[in-house]
Simulated assay, not measured.
Amino acid sequence: MTRYENLPTISGSASSQQLFTDAQTWSAYGAQWNSGEQKNLLCCDVHNETHDVKTFSFRCGDFSALSFEPGQFITVSPVISGQTLSRCYTLSSSPTRPFSFSITVKRVPGGIVSNWLHDNLRAGDSLKASGPAGSFTPVGHPAQKLLYLSAGSGVTPLMSMTRAGFDLAARLDIVFVHSTRTPADIVFHDELTRMQALMPGLRVLNVCEGRGAEADWAGPVGRLDLQLLSESVPDFREREVFTCGPQGYMDAIKAVLAKGAFDFQHYHQESFDIATLNEEPLIEQPPTAEQMETLFSITLSRSGKTFSMPADQTVLWAAKKAGAIVPSSCSQGVCGTCKTALLQGTVEMNHNGGIRQREIDKGLRLLCCSRPTSDLVLDL
């Protein structure tokens, strides 16, 4: 019971073992962790998936339930060398198991946060994270026949979707095609194999670029092309397609589907490049003298801070440069961490799915992808 030894006790519970048998625990600790909230997480387990991929399982410090849709992500914020760094990671677990959830992280060359997680995070450690976000989810796109296409770390949101379908005993027809380098790099291989044996509507196909050390690999070798797709999934045109992976992979998949006369009204892909997103946020260059000719005044209503900025810079960059503390992560309009109420003024915002229309209608904006078109007052 070591990994749970720090759990609180309730109503006279004498030990952590009783936490799981005390009915009052679940009612007292059943609050939800919703989008936009920051929580303190406890790492419960670290599991090696492959030689460079690990799954980190967590629970909320207050035992809240995580409310999310399969395919969404959380933003973790570890303190590394005295500095808080935030990165987005897709939840690989199923929302049907809300009290314990996981992210699956690939070690990235030069990736500060991914490498720190691999090298330092252990069961029993704590970590701050912001609540779930993202629009890459099958919720709102009901379909009986599904085709999941993934490569590399892009397997994680599709694994969450598959686990959810499995847990709910959903009567779905799912074909899950995952592309990877070698058989040794297949993430969730054993679990997907077991799920396939137990879930009548699930079929899994792994496509490897090479055999690596497994000379007896019997699966497809090479890259997914129209011929292989047509042979393996002859009814792919009848399916709702969800794809996630490096940008080059997703571009190639779109080309294959277009060649196969697929109707893209039934196509959905993650809107960011995972490898790029989990590196350092993009750094804007200081404004030029020409840009400085048109300045807007920005007022932060809570702190009273006021500063000026040019129209060609993002509000987030200018606010941080002025010393304002603004939660942020991806800097690409994806994660939603910098979502802030715009009290006065107007901005031009070009986001990548990190904010929903109903939030925009309420006056919220993503500062990382918003540029001023007038003087502004922000709820900061």
Rank of each mutant, 00 (worst) to 15 (best):
K254L: 01
K254H: 05
K254G: 09
K254M: 04
A255V: 07
A255E: 14
K259P: 00
A261E: 12
F262Y: 12
F264E: 00
F264S: 02
H266W: 03
Y267D: 01
Y267V: 01
Q269A: 07
E270N: 04
E270Y: 01
E270Q: 12
S271K: 10
F272E: 12
D273N: 07
D273S: 01
I274A: 09
I274P: 01
A275T: 05
L277E: 13
L277G: 07
N278T: 02
E279R: 10
E279M: 13
P281S: 05
P281G: 03
L282T: 11
I283H: 11
E284Y: 04
P286I: 15
P286D: 05
P287A: 10
T288E: 06
T288S: 13
T288D: 07
A289Q: 14
A289N: 13
Q291N: 07
E293G: 04
L295I: 10
L295W: 14
I298Q: 06
I298K: 01
T299D: 11
T299G: 02
S301P: 03
R302G: 10
R302V: 14
S303G: 15
G304I: 13
G304V: 13
K305V: 15
T306F: 03
F307K: 05
S308E: 13
M309P: 04
M309S: 10
P310N: 15
P310W: 15
P310E: 07
A311Y: 06
A311M: 08
A311V: 14
Q313I: 00
Q313R: 10
Q313A: 12
V315M: 05
W317A: 14
W317F: 14
W317D: 11
A318S: 15
A318V: 06
K320C: 15
K320F: 04
K321S: 08
K321H: 14
K321D: 13
A322W: 04
G323A: 11
A324P: 11
A324N: 11
A324M: 08
A324F: 00
I325T: 14
C330M: 07
S331H: 09
S331F: 12
Q332D: 11
Q332L: 10
G333W: 02
G333N: 09
V334K: 00
C335D: 06
C335W: 12
G336I: 12
T337V: 15
C338L: 08
C338S: 03
C338R: 00
C338H: 02
K339H: 09
K339F: 10
T340K: 01
T340N: 06
A341G: 06
A341R: 15
L342W: 02
L343F: 02
L343P: 02
L343H: 03
Q344C: 08
G345Y: 03
G345K: 00
T346E: 15
T346L: 02
E348I: 09
N350P: 07
H351R: 02
H351T: 03
N352V: 03
N352Y: 13
G353L: 04
G353F: 10
G354S: 06
G354P: 04
I355H: 08
I355V: 12
I355F: 12
I355D: 15
R356Y: 12
R356I: 01
Q357G: 02
K362M: 08
K362H: 07
G363L: 14
L364F: 14
R365W: 06
L366P: 02
L367R: 00
L367Q: 05
C368F: 04
C368Y: 04
C368I: 13
C369E: 05
C369P: 03
C369A: 05
S370L: 04
R371N: 11
R371Q: 13
